[in-house]
Design a protein around this nucleic acid. Sequence first.
RNA 1: GCCCUCGUGGCGGAAUCGGUAGACGCAACGGACUUAAAAUCCGUCGGCCACAAGCCGUGCCGGUUCGAGUCCGGCCGAGGGCACCA
Length: 881
Amino acid sequence: MLRIAEARHLKVFFGAIMQDRYDPAAVEADAQRHWEEQRCFEAVEDPSRPKYYCLSMFPYPSGKLHMGHVRNYTIGDVLARFMRMNGHNVLQPMGWDAFGLPAENAAMANGVPPARWTYDNIAHMKRQLKALGFALDWRRELATCQPEYYRWNQWLFLRMLEAGIAYQKTGVVNWDPVDQTVLANEQVIDGRGWRTGALVEKREIPMYYLRITDFAPDLLGALGEMPGWPERVRAMQANWIGRSEGVRIGFPYELGAERGVLYAFTTRADTVMGVTFCAVAPEHPLAQHAALRDPKVAAFVESCKHGPAIEAEIATQEKRGIDTGLSVRHPLSGEPVPVWIGNYVLMTYGEGAVMGVPAHDERDFEFAKKYGLRIRQVISVDGRDYSTDAWQPWYGEHGRCVNSGPYDGLDFERAIAAVAADLAHRGLGERQTTWRLRDWGISRQRYWGCPIPIIHCAACGAVPVPDEQLPVLLPEDLVPDGSGNPLARDARFLACTCPKCGAAARRETDTMDTFVDSSWYFLRYACSDNASAMLDERVRYWLPVDQYIGGIEHAILHLLYARFWTRVIKRLGGVEFAEPFTNLFTQGMVLNEVFFRKPESGRIQYFNPAEVELRRDASGARQEAVLRADGLPVESGGVVTMSKSKNNGVDPQALVDEFGADTARLFTMFAAPPEQTLEWSDEGVQGAFRFLKRLWKAVYDHVSAGAVAQPPREGLGDAARALRRQAHQTLAKVTDDVGRRRTFNTAIAAVMELMNAVARFEPAAAGDRAVVQESLEIAVLCLSPIVPHVTHALWRELGHERALIDEPWPRADEAALSQDTIEIVVQVNGKLRARVAVPAGADQEAARAAALADPTVRKFVGDAVIRKVVVVPGKLVNVVV
RNA sequence: GCCCUCGUGGCGGAAUCGGUAGACGCAACGGACUUAAAAUCCGUCGGCCACAAGCCGUGCCGGUUCGAGUCCGGCCGAGGGCACCA
């Protein structure tokens, strides 16, 4: 302990006396320099220590960090630092989801190649991440637009082709006829191209698909064994995969000399005797066949191509149909059944055809009423009366079969079993499980993405690029102009020779969906420096990811694709596990209030909340909001997600510049539990900053009074013992809140309470200052994962030579937690009436006696007979009269 | 339409396994310091009541329990996901 005193003396000697003012800029630069010089966050494989792979979803390099990033990465950083202090070998990497459409849009706007824009953004955002002090291993940084990364997309794609997991078929895209280009769904606005305003067409082109549907049963089944994932996310994925059990039913037909069977999937095979028509999708072969015979049918099929592109609009568009004039035979009754084309029938689900049972399906009912088709009741429920006048909800319920010949009287389950058996006997159907999930089309007619490694040869067709020719390099100097994919006009890129026959050939210009890039990057962090293999043995050490943190908006696509790719790699022998993320944490979004004015004519004008002043009444309630510039009122549009369009964003950089990274980190962790939405509050930021200033001052005041040599000893006074107890209670609570509950807000609140107690405590006796020293050390250690810079500085000031980053997480001292007497509350008939002090070890009888002796309790009990006394040891007594 | 969350002071939120409702912070109000402002410090802060005592109070109605913000049933409201899925 003398060493501490000496060290302090030396510091004084060299003039490095503690600043009385908290200066975040200096403190943060110093701490970051230390971590950098000591290479604190470079993770090295070490089988002797438990590993902890802590991963936050990597950002798209859009230009600068937004508040959502700050929140996401702070949560990850708190966990990484906490686990590190708890003895884990922590890996926390970072990279860039660097391909994608925004780069092409920026390129068009500025005339700069997407590569240049992307790399500039990465450089800027990397500086911002460093300024926030995240404990990242930057040696493992990767960007998905680098050939060193995307070559393995191409390599694995070729393996998938070999394994039959990747395949080619025609797919429907949104086609802009003016720009001669394919549009992403979000580029189609009200059925028109976003740039040209031209009516968008649906066009069929050859595309590559990944057979994710092969993995659907496993992707769904495994959800039941993922306790580390939020229930909500698992429910959303299950919903998306959409398993549906039913029966495939065949309707035989003859078209001239050709005999065929029209198959339809149904979950209501019990209603099969109520079929009065069949409806097929406009793209169905039978519809195509009918269109050749009848120009009116052809016109109808053509009109369906111009339907809306957005799924929500498809769902609400009017049901339309046309009779093909063809008919099929009912597989069980043999009756003829007319075939219609319906714009509500999806080619991509089931068989692209439905059996029409108007009596018991609401859509079929509506369709039949519109086109005058027969409605035949075949299900009865509780003997209720059926009428074809209007649809009633019970028509769709399960019941017993009627008017169904051999099936009459059967309930839902039995009827389906009987129908399936009869169909199987005739070779016209069987039980079938259908999935909502479709195969993943990965072809994008875009420039800024990973080239699909295929060569088109006039003689040999589509030929895979040989492994030794990988990567297929994407030229980085092209500037798209909106009229199609610039790769398709780039002779250097296009020209190649066929690997099979050696003839001149043409390179595939489609690129991969950017979701491919993000489906395996978490594996690559383990070995991002390996130039000769996609993965190596280090993956075995680090993976799977112990904790994944990201936004709920990725609950379905990204997380499902990542689970799928991991399974593919497992099947191909690359990894041994199927689930990439053991624990998933979905953080809430960052919200802010929206302020606007709506002129009588013209567009709504949005004002940033920083330009708006809130006026309050004497009780503190909001009166009105006015614009600072002119003092006139503005309207509030409520509290919503921060966005550019609503002008309600807060720039993290401005926050860091004014208050420092620690204040930004503290506020985002304190304002709300991390899973819930976080409402922005400038006053709240001030409050966080104020707390750090108070923390600094508390340490300053303590240190200025001289060094404390000895640890807290026996013989402390009541007040000192109480403070010491609270310090250790706080430590225990923070350990649980951060380590188990992940409620950083309550952990911070507990430390605030401790600091309030320290401020109230007046050291008097000899050992008192040692208790203050210990309390401050506990506060600093507890806060260090959240505000690592200021605590780094304060730890030094408290006399420690070893840097805070290397300190182990402390354990609460059981002796400090013990107390002689405890307070228990006393209820009479469940209502709080008194508090009494009892010895800590008091038994139930003693607690009961103490409660009944209390004068207030006696007053409330009065002359009544005590019927029962409930005693909760150490907590509460309830007297029931 | 189906599925999933969530409703607690003026505000963000706390109450972890059914046991003290409102921790912590913000705002507001009163005071100290200051020529003044900022910063800082002290105090008040769910409602009724002059105070105390007491009563009421966690969206609404009911239930279970000695005891319900917490569990169960029904309703109302907000948010999110899926959505012509046969």
